[in-house]
Design a binder for these strands. Structure first.
Length: 976
DNA sequence: TCGGGGCCAGTTTTT
DNA sequence: CTGGCCCCGA
């Protein structure tokens, strides 16, 4: 299985379990006493080693699972750890059910559940945490609650009006509060908890060293410093207070560097008012949340930390004999401190890989691992300032490096290091030597060295990625390792497309669909921006009063051209089948029922539809939602881009698309790293807010409010304008993201860009190939399809006959074997050959024997001569009506009372759908003429999931237009 | 070769 | 609101 961690797959687990751990792994497994810092690079069997080490610890006589803390960062990881530990120690799953193998958040949650009752009182808040205190997990929900709080807060505090005037969006204050909480900066009733206030004031020494770094003249002194250059725009489009220094004073005159005194000038600002404002927002929000009986993720850690800090007896009773933290590079400052409070002895082991630290936006601090010793000592000193909370010795720190990689070829491992060293922008100075010193190189234990590392660029990037994947699949130049270690031909399932953004993945998915390339999205998706949700929204709107917006979407999805849609909307002559569907929907009582009917009509039964349905049902049961509410809910979801997890069907042979973040910890034989395009992102850290917090400079605001000529006015803050130019732009996490993406690959890596490759791609030692190959169209293209002449037998017509690949009734009902295309083509080829009069042989063992029999008997039973045109399927020209259409229809099942026209499709490409709709419509009208007394249906059967979808036939006028356009004739043949 | 002015394009990741 | 780019002048 490509999309699961190596250690998880049966084949590799076998390899690792049969083979003994390598010497480094064994060292870690055996070293259970003392302080350990483990550098465990990508694919080095980290989970394997940790679980063995855990088993080793709990198998000691006097150690029980409840004495051993094992922290992971996801619940999935915790579950996986437990699963794998069970196989290696004397404890079973039941013994480990309550063992502390969990995430920081769930650990804190448990702690508060049991002991957190009075935790808020340590801050001076007169409220309690109880069993009924909820955890708000959804960002949207919390933002709504915070908005409510801020409204009230601003009413209660007119003295802060000046600050509120500069806050454009209240959620930036929520972000600030969360960021402070992640660092352990909390407010108390009359100040800040412990030494929290120091953070808010910043650290001048740290700032000055950053300042000096960007203020160093370049090119050996001939060129002004980066900082001076950046300050060129000082004051531009700004409105400073009159007492702000002049640009010339800030930049210095006749010099290549900014005067040193500027550092002090910009750093020393009066922050008392700002601190008071942030304090009160933070403190009263805590009160509000507790009053509303909820906590967010950050507050769980906040109160757990306070409890462990304040209640010495509790801390000592909880303290673990052994503690291990996995993925330590993902930990935040408060999590590091929590670890110290939870570890009762120095039997502490942190495992991680700084090179894979890509969760800065979740407050992960890579310094926790890169500056482990400094931080350890600093945090212990802080925690012990007034009471000895951390009792163990912080020395010595043992380091262990896992260097054997079980995933990638050596060529990929070597190449991946470039990812950490390439500049991200033209003027990005990478300290190559310093980074190289830090990198612990990995060596592979894979047996083959069959690796392609390529880069392609094309103006049509989505198409070129699809084409490249088509090129790779089935191509022995891209062989991958089979379970038995030999090499085999790559399949779709071996390929993963990793992207930086979800948006690119969504768009690529659409392109893949158009070309019939099997592709599935894995991970968090902006649920309400999917076609499924949009279609549901459209039908809800049709049911509600906003009909045009709804109908337009529905008609477009059904393949109507823009002018057709316009016509339908103007005349309100909606297709009959759609109108009756609307009536049926209107009768349904529940919104969940409506959603289900809509999805089943469109054959949406995949993971995405499930999640939409589930989400709607959960909202619906939580509140009493009207249709109008649901419309607004979905609309809001679309605007906010709120995400939900979608999981691809694991068994499907399809390409995986995921974000690099979502792919962390996973591996794929072939990785396509797409969207390597130039495109800048807003500066990390500060965000776009007007009140920000950043490590060396503390709390600051970008704009300030003042009266000007008696009128209210907002001014820019000149100090902040200078400060932000002093802070270097961090590309390190971007580089690590690149590294993570490359190291997901087992055998091959393909980088892909559009017209404008980014600096990363240009700097990597790989040649960028212009790749203009068009994808193979798997679907029918109406401009290239051979025109097909069909006629239909005389009105009395045969019963039970189909024009092409006939299938028995039971076969037709059951075709869901996913081999529709190959099967259909084979039968078509046979039918065509037979119609031509070629010598054909038919054996009982042939695939499709039954159906070919049908074809033969049908053709034998036809009256008139068969006219065969080149490359056309079964072009029949009997005396009767002639109709020109393109393409083929798989089945026309003529029964005594009704006729079914069905086309089988293996995918859900929209091009194809519109195309088949035309063909089915032609058949529909012809047959209706010929058999007016029989009920006629036209539908598409998706063999991939066995769903049948009714088609609303096009009108005759529309068909005539289409046939005209396709045939290029002035007047198209009409259906009689 | 450097500094400075002007102009343009494009805006993420999620336990 | 920034980085990148172009152009111009010293």
């Amino acid at each position: 299985m490509p999309n699961s961690e190596r250690e998880d797959s049966p084949a590799s687990r076998r390899v690792e379990d049969v083979n003994d751990p390598n010497p480094q792994q064994q060292d870690l497994i055996d070293s259970t006493d003392g302080l350990y810092l483990v550098d465990a690079g990508a694919g080095t069997g980290k989970t394997f080693t940790i679980t063995r080490r855990y088993a080793n610890i709990v198998d000691e006589d006097d150690v029980a699972p409840e004495d051993v803390l094992l922290v992971t960062f996801t619940n999935n990881a915790a579950t996986e750890m437990k699963d794998r530990i069970v196989g290696h120690c004397e404890y079973g799953m039941r013994d480990l059910a309550d063992a502390p193998i969990q995430t920081f958040h769930s650990l804190c949650h448990d702690l508060l559940q049991e002991h957190g009752y009075a935790a808020p009182t340590h801050l001076g808040i007169d409220d309690r945490i109880t069993g009924s205190t909820r955890i708000v997990e959804d960002d949207l929900v919390e933002e709504a609650l915070f908005g409510e709080f801020i409204d009230r807060f601003s009413d209660d505090h007119p003295e802060y009006d000046d600050y509120f005037r500069i806050v454009s969006n209240p959620t930036e204050l929520l972000g600030l509060v969360s960021q402070l909480a992640s660092k352990g900066v909390f407010p108390t009733a009359d100040g800040w908890y412990r030494n929290g206030e120091r953070y808010l004031d910043g650290n001048f020494e740290a700032f000055k060293s950053l300042f000096d770094e960007v203020n160093e003249p370049q090119n050996g002194g001939s060129k002004q410093s980066q900082l001076r250059s950046k300050l060129n725009r000082y004051g531009k489009n700004k409105c400073y207070l009159p007492n702000a220094p002049e640009k010339a004073d800030i930049r210095g005159q006749g010099t290549k560097r900014v005067p040193d005194a500027v550092a002090r000038m910009v750093f020393d600002a009066d922050r008392e008012g700002l601190k008071a404002f942030v304090h009160d927002v933070f403190y009263e929000y805590l009160e509000f949340a507790l009053g509303r009986n909820y906590l967010n993720f950050g507050f769980l850690q906040l109160f757990a930390f306070i409890l462990l800090c304040e209640d010495h007896a509790l801390r000592e009773s909880i303290a673990f004999d052994y503690a291990m933290v996995d993925e330590f590079q993902d930990s935040s400052e408060i999590q590091f401190k929590l670890t110290l409070l939870l570890a009762g002895t120095n039997n502490l082991c942190v495992v991680g890989d700084w090179k894979q630290s890509i969760y800065g936006f979740q407050y992960a601090e890579v310094e926790n691992i890169t500056a482990f010793e400094d931080r350890l000592n600093r945090f212990v000193d802080e925690l012990n300032a007034d009471h000895e909370r951390v009792t163990f010795d912080t020395r010595p720190i043992h380091t262990i490096e896992l260097i054997e990689n079980y995933r990638s070829t050596q060529e990929i491992l070597d190449f991946s290091e470039h990812g950490l060293l390439v500049p991200a922008a033209n003027r990005d100075n990478v300290d190559v030597e310093a980074i190289q010193d830090r990198i612990v190189s990995l060596s592979t234990n894979t047996e083959h060295e069959n690796t392609q590392i390529e880069a392609i660029a094309s103006p049509e990037e989505h198409e070129s990625v699809v084409a490249k994947i088509q090129d790779i699949v089935g191509n022995d130049a891209y062989q991958v390792e089979a379970d038995d270690g030999s090499l085999r031909t790559p399949e779709y399932r071996d390929v993963a497309v990793l992207t930086r953004t979800r948006e690119f993945g969504r768009d690529l998915l659409q392109t893949a669909e158009e070309y019939g390339l099997p592709m599935a999205y894995e991970g968090g998706i902006e649920l309400f921006r999917t076609p499924q949700a949009k279609l549901l929204l459209a039908w809800l709107r049709i049911l509600e009063s906003d009909t045009d917006r709804g109908w337009a979407v529905v008609l477009e999805q059904a393949g109507y051209a823009l002018d057709e849609i316009k016509h339908v909307l103007e005349t309100e002559a909606y297709p009959e089948n759609m109108s009756s569907f609307r009536e049926k929907l209107a009768e349904l009582e529940t919104l969940g029922g409506v959603a289900e009917r809509v999805f089943s009509r469109y054959g949406y039964d995949g993971a995405t539809a499930d999640v939409v349905l589930h989400t709607i049902q959960s909202v619906h049961t939580a509140t009493t939602l009207t249709r109008g509410d649901l419309i607004r809910f979905i609309q809001r979801g679309i605007e906010a881009g709120s995400t939900h997890d979608v999981h691809a069907n694991a068994g499907a042979n399809s390409v995986t698309v995921q974000t690099i973040h979502a792919a962390k910890g996973l591996e794929h034989p072939i990785v396509v790293l797409a969207n390597m395009n130039s495109g800048r992102f807003p500066p990390s850290g500060g965000g776009s807010g007007t009140i920000t917090f950043q490590d060396p400079v503390g709390l600051r605001q970008r704009k300030r409010y003042a009266e000007a000529d008696g009128l209210p006015h907002v001014y820019d803050d000149w100090r902040t304008d200078v400060l932000r130019r002093c802070l270097p732009r961090e590309y390190d996490e971007e580089r690590r993201l690149l590294y993570v993406a490359i190291t997901r690959a087992e055998s091959h890596v393909i980088f892909s860009a559009g017209e404008d490759p980014n600096t990363f791609l240009e700097e990597l030692p790989v040649e960028i190939e212009a790749w203009d190959t068009e994808p193979d169209a798997d679907t029918v293209d109406d401009t290239e399809q051979t025109e097909l002449l069909i006629t239909v037998p005389t009105p009395e017509g045969p019963v039970g006959h189909s024009p092409h690949s006939l299938m028995r009734e039971d076969v037709f009902e059951d075709v869901d074997d996913g081999m529709g295309k190959a099967f259909g083509t084979d039968v078509h080829d046979f039918a065509e050959a037979y119609a031509r009069g070629d010598d054909v042989e038919l054996n009982r063992d042939d695939p499709g024997w039954d159906d070919k029999q049908h074809v033969m008997s049908f053709l034998d039973g036809l009256s008139g001569d068969l006219l065969v045109e080149e490359d056309a399927y079964l072009p029949l020209d009997v005396d009767g009506t002639r109709v020109m259409i393109s393409g083929i229809i798989d089945l026309v099942h003529v029964r005594a009372d009704r006729i079914e026209v069905v086309d089988y499709k293996t995918d859900r490409g929209r091009h194809a759908e519109a195309e088949y709709r035309k063909q089915l419509s032609v058949y529909y009208h012809v047959l209706r003429e010929l058999y007016p007394e029989r009920e006629i249906s036209a539908s598409i059967l998706y063999t991939v999931d066995g769903v049948r979808e009714e088609i609303d036939p096009l009108s005759r006028d529309a068909l005539t237009d289409i046939v005209k356009a396709v045939s290029g004739l002035e007047s198209a043949p009409t259906v009689q």
